[in-house]
Computed example of a mutant assay.
Amino acid sequence: MSYPEDEDDAALFRSAIGEVTPMRPVETPVTGKPRPKPRARMAEQDESQALGEFARLLRSSGPLDAGDVASYRRENLPARMFQRLKRGQYSVQDELDLHGATAAQAEMMLREFLLEAHAHEHGCVRIIHGKGLQSDGGAPVLKNLVDRMLRQRNDVLAFHSAPLTQGGTGAVLVLLANR
Rank of each mutant, 00 (worst) to 15 (best):
D136V: 15
A162P: 00
E121Q: 15
S2C: 09
G88D: 02
L157C: 00
A43N: 11
N76M: 05
H129Q: 10
T28N: 07
S61G: 06
I17P: 00
I17D: 02
L133V: 14
V26Q: 06
P25S: 06
L115R: 14
R41Y: 08
M1D: 11
V92K: 01
N76G: 02
S71T: 11
P163E: 08
R39K: 15
Q89W: 07
G138C: 07
A66K: 02
V125W: 00
E107A: 12
E53K: 15
L145G: 02
E44F: 12
H99I: 12
R84H: 08
V26D: 05
S48I: 08
L150K: 02
G32W: 03
L133T: 15
L150N: 04
M108R: 14
Q166C: 10
S135D: 15
A101T: 14
Q49W: 10
A79N: 04
S60W: 04
M109T: 04
G168C: 09
A43L: 15
N178P: 13
D136C: 09
D68I: 10
R87N: 05
R84K: 11
D8M: 08
E53C: 07
S71E: 11
G137V: 07
V30S: 05
A103R: 15
L12E: 01
V156I: 14
P78Y: 01
